[in-house]
Nucleic acid binder design. Structure first.
Length: 433
DNA sequence: TCTGGGGTCCTAGGACCC
DNA sequence: TCTGGGGTCCTAGGACCC
């Protein structure tokens, strides 16, 4: 049995903790570059703001309806997430942190009334961290997800409720007849694993509700769609097919990509950008103790804007697997020089570290560049990570990323960012009597 | 003026092998 | 008229997730 604990409108809720005046108002959080809405309060949803709606198309709502838009403050959200997750873990013996605002809890062996227990954990998160949560409980992860969705919408049906009222739904405690009614009242597109495409195909075939989907024959689903959807159907039928990953698996690829604050045409800023991205990706790589065998570099023009299109990428193999910032930056800049062509308004670039292997695996090689050199480089990287950890990101970086922020023509726009309330002494909120 | 970033898994098809 | 059978590995692309 599983629970899914999930923070409501998470980014907005994080902002509201430190700015209570945002309670009850339509609030959204914007993506990098203040591009589009990536989180919406219930009031903003009620105004008709869609997920990923471009800001320039909805900004008139600021004047007409008091819509508040904030730049994404991922440092804050990450820290609030850590606090929320550590409390959610109290619900059961195992936990899988599934995303920044969701975790699955394994409930095997938990005794007593699960629903009560879920309410208690939810209340504690609300009181200690200030984030309103919903909790769904079901026999499988897919059912727990569904329960979580129902917990959120059941109350919306009784009228408009503020974000913090999302509660608890325990499908395991529901009599079979009620269960059918609930499934029949829920659209198939809400199921975890059913996206837009498949939802459309299902509806075209007359499968409209979750109940319709549950009653399908898994073998038919497999032959007409895929094993993925077959698993989803079995999970909805109560047969666990997706296990809890309580020890996070190492990433198989690590990316760092960004849209630019404004279009870039020259090579130099592109070199700066991919140097920065490669450095960031290398840090993530070292954090999980892996090394990369190749690095992909790409750049492209806006898919939305007229004008000549450009989209190119290249994979640069590393001479040997590495997590060394300097080597990865070198490879990334070499790749960028290779694909670069003048005359295009590029709006995005990025790097991806590919073919990752554990850092402990070392390829034996007929090469006289000794291990001493390697060991020194590795100590250098450890020192660099430690300094950046202590004094802040970017304290120590390779010079090709550009020396100062102002010269970075590619830097991202963030005009409405709130302070790093919980992670920076300078930005800590001050309470006045 | 203006449209995010970071992942995973599965499948089909081609290259290649014996 | 007629052209085997069975595998593996890799890649690109699709679909999904938050």
């Amino acid at each position: 049995m599983y629970a899914l604990v999930d923070g409501n409108n998470f980014y907005v809720s994080c902002e509201r903790v430190f700015r209570p005046s945002l309670q009850g108002r339509p609030v959204i959080v914007l993506s990098n570059n203040d591009g589009c809405a990536i989180a919406r309060s219930n009031e903003a949803k009620a105004l008709g703001v869609k997920m990923a709606a471009p800001w320039f198309e909805i900004r008139h709502l600021a004047d007409s309806h008091g819509l508040v838009a904030l730049s994404a403050n991922f440092t804050l959200y990450g820290d609030m997430s850590d606090r929320m997750m550590s409390l959610a873990a109290g619900l059961g013996p195992t936990q899988e942190i599934y995303s920044i605002d969701e975790s699955f809890i394994g409930l095997d062996g938990v005794r007593g009334d699960l629903t009560k227990r879920a309410f208690a954990v939810r209340a504690r998160i609300n009181q200690w961290v200030g984030i309103p949560c919903g909790v769904g409980i079901g026999a499988t992860k897919t059912l727990a997800k569904l329960a979580n969705y129902i917990a959120k919408t059941a109350e919306r049906k009784h009228g408009s409720y503020p974000d913090d009222l999302a509660q608890v739904c325990n499908l395991c405690a529901l009599p079979a007849s009620d269960m059918d009614a609930v499934l029949a009242a829920t659209e198939v597109s809400e199921v975890w694993g059913v996206g837009r495409r498949i939802a459309k195909q299902l509806q075209d075939g007359g499968i409209n509700t979750v109940l319709d989907l549950v009653r399908m024959d898994p073998a038919t689903v497999r032959s007409r769609w895929s094993v993925v959807l077959e698993r989803t159907v079995r999970e909805l039928q109560g047969l666990p097919c997706i296990e809890l990953e309580d020890a996070p698996l190492p990433k198989k690829e690590i990316a760092c990509t960004r849209s630019f604050g404004r279009p870039v045409t020259d090579l130099r800023p592109l070199i700066e950008a991919v140097s920065e991205f490669a450095g960031r990706a290398a840090e993530k790589l070292r954090r999980q103790g892996s090394v990369a065998r190749e690095i992909l570099v790409f750049a492209h023009t806006s898919p939305f804007r007229p004008g000549p299109r450009f989209s190119r990428s290249t994979v640069v193999p590393l001479r040997r697997p590495t997590a060394d910032t300097a080597l990865l930056v070198n490879a990334a800049t070499a790749g960028m020089r290779q694909i670069y062509e003048p005359g295009y308004q590029l709006i995005k670039a990025g790097v991806m570290l590919l073919d990752l292997v554990p850092g402990t695996v070392r390829q034996g090689e007929l090469d006289l560049e000794g291990d001493d050199e390697d060991a020194n480089r590795s100590r250098l990287m450890t020192a660099m990570d430690a300094l950046n950890g202590r004094f802040g990101k970017g304290t120590l970086h390779v010079a090709s990323t550009g020396i100062d922020d102002h010269s970075r023509v590619w830097g991202m726009r963030q005009e409405r960012r709130t302070p790093h309330y919980t992670t920076s002494w300078e930005e800590m909120p001050v309470a006045r009597a």
